[in-house]
Each structure stands twice: as C-alpha cells, then as structure tokens.
Design a protein around this nucleic acid. Structure first.
Length: 438
DNA sequence: TCTGGGGTCCTAGGACCC
DNA sequence: TCTGGGGTCCTAGGACCC
C-alpha cells in the first residue's frame, strides 16, 4: 500500500485544468507585431543558436524544438521563415499578465512554468454548465486581456490534465479545450492508444526507448502494466506516473513555489575556448551573476559547484566534462568569496588540450525552513510513541523515498544531541529504537 | 563556421565511522 | 578469535521538465 495514494473517503476527487499558451514566445512577439500573424517564424536562444519557439507553420514543416538556426537555413529561405532573438523580459511580463487573468477564475493555482499553470477547478465548476464551458471561458478571457492564445486540458490528475492539453493542441475538433474526465472511457482509451507513450509528462527519451523495447508503444499499452511492476523497473517516479494516468491523483497542486535549492549561471561560448585564463574570466563572471541572483532572493550558499564542458556536438573531438564542488567554510552571499571559490575550483578541474564550449557555476542554497517531511516526522515524534515512529517512517518511505528518511533521521539525531547534550547518542536506524524525546 | 539556459528528483557508489 | 558489515554522508551523474 502506498500512502501517497489518497485516502479512500474524505476528500472529493480533485479536478485539474492545465492552461498552456500556444507557442508562447512566438505568440508574445505577435501580440506586439500583428503583421507577424501567419508568418512562419521562430524565436532563437541566447546566442541566436537554436530555435526555442516555433510558430505552427514552422512546426508543420517538421522543424523540431532546439533545431540550430544554421541547420534550417535552407528551409528558412524556401518558406520565408523569420527569426527573432529572444526577449525574456517581455515574456516574463506577459506570463505574469496571464497568471493575473487565471487568478480571476480561482486562487487555487500553481504557476508551473513561464507559459503553463495548473488550476484546481472542482469547486469553481458550479458556476458553469460544464467543464468545457469553463475551459472556453478561460481561453477567451486570456485572449481578450493579453492577446495570447491558450489551450486548456482537464483531467482527474495533473498528468491527465497534461494529456488532455496535448489533445486540445493537436486536434482541431476540441477547439482548444479538452476534458478527458468527461469523456466516455472508450473514447479516452482510443485517444490513449493513438498517442505515443513518450508524450506522457515524465516519460522522456531514455525511458521511451526501454518501454518500446518491451512492446509498450502507446499510453494505452502502459495502462496495461501494473504500477508496482513499473516501480520495480523504473522506480517510484514511474509508479506514481502510472497511478496518475489511471486517474488517481498523486501530485498535488503546489500553490506556493518552494524555495529554490540551486542557482545556476552558465553560458555557452560563441567560440571554443582553450586557455585557463579565458575560462577563468567566464567563470568569474558567472560567479558574480550567481551571487547577485542569490542576494536578490536573500539566500546564502554553503557550497559552490564549477563546471566546464567541451562541445558534445563534436564527438570526434576529445571530450572533457568536469565539475567540482567547493564547500565554503562559512555560508556566504559575497561576490568576492564566491568568485575566489569558483576560480580555485576551476584550477583543480582545468586540463589543457581540450576545446571548451561551456562553463558555469552552481550555488547550493542553504534553507532554514524544515521540509514538509521533517515536519511530518517531528509531529509523529512529538507523540513519543515508537509505534507511531515506525508508522511515520513507513509513510515517509512510501511517499518520499529513502533520501527523506535519511534527512529525517539526521534531524532526529541532531535534535537528540541538542536536547540531551549527548555527543554520541545511542543512535540506530532501527526506527523503534530511535531515541524518543518526551 | 554556426547546436540554450535554468531547474528538479532519484540513485549509485566511495569514504568513513563504529 | 575469526578484519565484517551496517550505517551515514557526500558527490557525481542520469533522468526528467520547461
């Protein structure tokens, strides 16, 4: 029994809507340049390297996400594809506007990415005839207020809402709104058997490959295998995903964005770089930028990671991917401290004879807030009963995995040391023998 | 010639301790 | 006695997402 599954009775079945802006970056550009409507166009990544957004016309030409601009030069000429450099400030602003509109429908909203939000809608529904009417209303409001086109997918779990959104985007007949929950099962299964398993949220290229090797090609195929079996092969994430596809919601709405755990600052080089001096210059820049981000969110870091990479697109060249984590003696947000640590790290990993393509710095943030799991553990612990403890560990293991037990155990150990003043407690991982503080 | 940047979670495995 | 083995901590790396 997995306790991340909802308990049988008390809570009503949730219903999720995923609202996703179509071709977000392209659509943003078009809002401000209406003449671009219907013009095949792409928005390019930072160094104008590759396409990070494609208009419907370009998608129809078979251009994949991330295609390098130079590779589509011929196609661009032939079909008059226009390319725009990305303007993330503009996109961020438009994204906020969309969220404001969505909040007029319900406060129970999770901003999942720059162009997607999940809404929990089972309580909102009363005011509408059905989910499709609600979906259309959302779609029209966003269009009217921001000029951006969206699709709405509705389902009993986040994963199903994602799937519904996929259908809404791919198939004209849904007119931008699809509810797989209201659909007859036979129709849902039909769509699922027509959709590649790799389209499922959380199933990427590698897992798709493994699944196909076992004859699992469509989403419907995946439904035929028990979640427990999938867990043994692919782990707990896959198991959860299977339950979600069956309409059992395991992933909750995260209305409050959790505090960041990492800050990354990295860039590819326009030209390949060979000398340590050149790398040092870029690493120092990244460290400074990361430190700035860190301070802007009032964080501190306890360790900093530096990484350098050669160009993976040149497999015939010698490859070198190195990273090193530099613990700091004191937590810091100081630019000079972080820059020095980064440069010291670079010194250790740099090797001559390679042509580097990318460098970056990662800050690992220190959080003073207890995790949800820790609170859960503390709660049970405070009852002072070993049986409760064991149950709690089971629950934590099932819901969050072993890593969390580790952190919970560490927390207990520290609490024990603090409260008892005992430097080496009789510490064991037999949960029923954990020191219990009364 | 030219191929993004910023995140999350999970797991494996080595160093170390008792 | 038999030099084992369980456990933690940390990091690297792989998978995924947008």
């Amino acid at each position: 029994m997995n306790s991340y599954l909802p308990s049988a009775s008390n809570t009503p079945t949730p219903l999720f809507a995923l609202v996703d802006v179509n071709n977000f970056y392209v659509s943003c550009e078009r809002v401000f340049q209406p003449k671009l409507e219907e013009v095949p166009m792409v928005v390019l990544s930072n160094n104008d390297g590759c396409a990070v957004a494609r208009s419907a016309e370009v998608k129809a030409l078979g251009v994949k996400m991330g295609t390098p601009w130079f590779q589509m030069a011929g196609l661009a000429k032939k079909h008059g594809i226009q390319a725009y450099s990305s303007n993330y400030t503009l996109y961020g602003d438009m994204s906020n506007r969309v969220v404001q509109v969505l909040k007029t429908f319900t406060p129970n909203l999770e901003v999942y990415s720059i162009d997607e939000s999940f809404l929990q809608i089972e309580t909102v529904l009363k005011q509408y005839q059905d989910t499709l009417e609600l979906g259309q209303s959302i779609k029209q409001s966003v269009k009217a207020s921001t000029g951006l086109p969206v699709c709405v997918g509705i389902g009993a779990s986040k994963t199903l809402a994602k799937f519904a959104n996929h259908l809404a985007k791919k198939h004209q007949q849904f007119v931008g709104v699809c509810d797989v929950n209201a659909m007859p099962k036979s129709e849902l299964y039909q769509w699922m058997s027509e959709t590649e398993v790799g389209e499922v949220w959380g199933i990427g290229r590698q897992i798709t490959k493994k699944l196909k090797a076992q004859g699992i090609h469509s989403i419907f195929d995946l439904l035929q295998v028990s979640p427990q079996v999938m867990r043994q092969q692919f782990g707990v994430v896959m198991e959860r995903l299977c339950y979600e596809l069956r309409g059992t919601s395991c992933l909750q709405l995260e209305e409050v964005a959790p505090a960041k755990q990492q800050i990354i600052a990295s860039r590819s080089f326009g030209k390949l770089v060979t000398s340590q001096a050149e790398l040092a210059e870029s690493v120092a820049t990244h460290a400074a930028r990361a430190a700035e981000k860190l301070r802007s969110q009032h964080g501190v870091t306890g360790a900093l990671t530096v990484f350098i990479q050669t160009n993976p697109f040149k497999p015939h060249e010698p490859q070198h991917h190195q990273s090193i984590t530099m613990p700091l003696s004191d937590a810091s947000d100081n630019t000079l401290t972080l820059t020095n640590a980064a440069l010291a790290g670079l010194k250790q990993i740099y090797q001559t004879g390679f042509r580097y393509k990318k460098a970056g710095v990662i800050l690992n943030l220190i959080s003073d807030k207890p995790t949800v799991q820790q609170s859960l553990f503390d709660d049970i612990e405070s009852k002072g009963k070993s049986a409760h403890l064991m149950k709690a560990m089971d629950e934590i293991n099932n819901r969050f995995g072993n890593a969390v037990i580790r952190s919970a155990a560490t927390g207990t150990k520290q609490a024990w040391q603090m409260r008892s003043g005992n430097k080496s407690p009789n510490y064991t991982t037999q949960w029923d023998e954990l020191p219990v503080v009364r």
